[in-house]
Amino acid sequence: MSQQINLVFFILFGIAILLVATMIGLFLVFSRKKNQIIEAGLKKELELKIHQYEVELKALRSQMNPHFVHNSLNAIQYYIQRNEVEISENYLVKFSKLIRLFFEYSGKQNITIQQEIELLQNYLYLEKLRFEAKLNYEFHIDERLDIECQQIPSMLLQPIVENAVNHGIFHKEEEGNISVSFVYLDHQSFVVTIEDDGIGMTRSKAILKNNSNGHQHRSSNVIRDRIELLNQSKSWEITFDTHEKMPEQGSGTTITISFSQKN
């Protein structure tokens, strides 16, 4: 009788141990795996963040194009030498404001469309002082856009406009025009079109090849890298399209970027 009680106790105890061990084992294995996956995810996120900072730094460097700074200072010097104090003073004020905006906005992920427009206008104003009558520009802003509230990734458009000036208009003999349009799609989406009637990408690339200046190539890569990162971040859905006019349509390049902000 006592032996049977021992056996029953052994069976019940054994089954209980088996069940508890199974449940604990199962939860331990899955919890460990969960932690590994979370750790790997965090590591990946960190790497993405580092990459993002690197790209942003590159973007900042490409925006602070030394040629642009050099050309602007040369132009200021030119006006000072000609004793055109008012123009040179005006130039200097705009230049310092632009530099300040560069530094202010480069630290932000997003800025308002109004701020982006202000930056582009400042930049084009300076370029116009340098190019004088050879450069004309205009902005078209859809009235439905709430430019004071609607966000845009900071300083993404400036390098594109700079390419249009330096590689589209610069090599053109006649005067050139740049048009920047912001078109409303819905409360979270809009399209920006940057159009120039310069020499076009094909001829510009041929000239660049001879001059061995890699800045355009570098800044195009930076733009594409930034768009890719922004799409990966899931906060934006951005498409980028480049179109060169056919010879019978004249010459020039149209860049179309659609922005859709995600929640």
Binding site: Q4, L7, V8, I11, L12, G14, I15
Partner: peptide
């Protein structure tokens, strides 16, 4: 394991029926 053990052992304890 419970079924295999109980099937091969002649046990008469009500606690076995609780498993």
């Amino acid at each position: 394991p419970f079924y295999l053990l109980v099937r091969n052992l002649d046990l008469h304890d009500y606690r076995i029926g609780l498993v």
